[in-house]
Structures are given as C-alpha cells and as structure tokens.
Amino acid sequence: MTFRARHLLGIEQLAPDEIRSLLDLADTYVDLNRRTIKRTDALAGMTQINMFFEASTRTQSSFEIAGKRLGADVMNMAVAHSSVKKGETLIDTALTLNAMHPDLLVVRHPNSGAVALLAQKVNCAVLNAGDGKHEHPTQALLDALTIRRRKGRLQRLVVAICGDIAHSRVARSNLLLLGKMENRIRLIGPPTLMPAGVAEFGCEVYDDMAEGLKGADVVMMLRLQKERMDGGFIPSEREYYHRYGLDAEKLAHAKEDAIVMHPGPMNRGVEIDGTLADDINRSVIQEQVEMGVAVRMAAMDLLARNLKAERGARAAGVVV
C-alpha cells in the first residue's frame, strides 16, 4: 500500500502508485457497501467536519455517509449562512475549527486554491471537495474507479471529455488523473468553453462531437451551468443540445462498448439525452455515485492512517 499524502488537495500531487493504492482499497469498500452491515471502525473516535462554502447535495452526503460508515463522528457545517456572513475570513474560520481538534476536514470553496490555503493553517488532514475551477480530486478518483471496474483497466483508453471544460474542476482533475495513468484524452466542446492554452495540455481538442467521439472507450459529459446557457458563452440551450448534447446518434461514433459518464447533477435535454442517461447498457452514471462513497471512504481511511502514523511518530519524539 503506497499513499504518502497528508492531504488530498488535488490529483496534481498524487503519484500513479498512490492512485492505484487508493483505488485498490476503494474496491474493498465497494464490497463492504453492498452488504447489509456496512460499518467498519477505521475512523472510530475521529472527528470529521464537512465545510461547504458552496451549496452541494451529492458530494456532501457522499462524504457524510463515507465518514459514518468508517465510524467517524461527522459534523456538517453550513458555512454559507454562518460566520462567513459576519465577515470572518477563511483563515479565521479554519483556525476556529482547528481549535476543536477535528481529524478530517472536507472542504468545498468557490475560489480556486482556497482549500490549499486553508490546509496550510490547520493540523488535520484536509480533503478538497472542489475548489473553484481548480480541482475536484475525489470526483476524478471515483470516475477512475468506475472506468477501471467497467473496462478492466485504467490505461491506453481513449477518453472523450465533452462540454464546458473551461469552468470545470471535474475536467481538470480528470485530465490530470487520466494523463498520469497514460490514456489518450480528447476534449470536445465549443471554443468559448475551452480553457485558454488548451493546445498545450497534451490532449486532442475538437469542436465537433462526431469527429471527437470516433473510437472513444469512455464518453464523459460535463454539466453546463445554467448561468452560462444564454448568450454569453453559447447562443442558446437548444443550439447547444443540437451540437453538443449526447444522444444515441452522436454516441454511435464512439466504440460499440463505450460507456457514458456524467458527474451529475444532469441537465436532461441540454448536455445529455434522457433516454441515453437511463440506458443501463451504456450509462454508468448511477454506478459513479456508488463508487463515490467507496472512493471517499478509501481516501479518508488512507489519510487517517497517515495522520495516526504522524502523530504516533511525533509522540515518540521522531521529527516529522
């Protein structure tokens, strides 16, 4: 088992063997989660605080369930309507929480880099649950686990990531992870939704779905935020659906056994056709949610082990 990280701030800091170790452990949690009795005591006695500066339902509940199944005491802090409203800075909020001795801090924040900033100020393990347009590492890990279980491998695959790449932290984390595991990545979307400098990313870039999907093993759709639909980035929702919405016809360009993924929540009829999203032969969207809990359990378990080891070493007088 190789996993050295103290925090899970992004895929950027993880080595391929760390990713593999985490996914291997997550596989065991998938089995556990399918049993009736789902509890272990990996985090027994430890405190996990979920701090979401940005509204979230699925990610927050996934982290909450993951923590509870590992035996941690889980607290959800609704930051959106608390001290932040009273003008407290992010660092002060972090220091206040830190004084309560949490062991794991799960943080989502609307600003890129904010979770890393917070991690510098606390002495527990920090998990990034999404920071601005930067990274969303557990999403990329759960996508990787889903792909590995469906395709039997996580390398030499052709993965097409489609839609709003520019504003997507999911896309960035996936790009990094799939790149580290040596896959061919294609980015498909209108140029207004492509990040600047995309040509230097080492991916193939397409603005046409049919062309970009040709021969793909995995088709990853991204959510198009409501506020970007009208006029600013794309002319209209219906033109977007016509050109970039995934339906059976466009999917026919991909490999016959290509799987369809979506990080959720979906806009049916905007980026993906409803029938296709529900097609259990092609769509793995529900499976992604299931893998999400397992991956988060694995991540927290590994970080907790490192934390315990570090504290044990410090107590024994070893300089860490």
């Binding site: 601005g132 930067h134 520019a166 990040p195 600047a196 230097e200």
Partner: peptide
C-alpha cells in the same frame, strides 16, 4: 494560458 487554466484562475 495553460498556467491560469490549470490553476483554475
């Protein structure tokens, strides 16, 4: 550019 995009800024 690439740096800004990877940092999400």
């Amino acid at each position: 550019g690439k740096f800004a995009s990877l940092r999400g800024l």
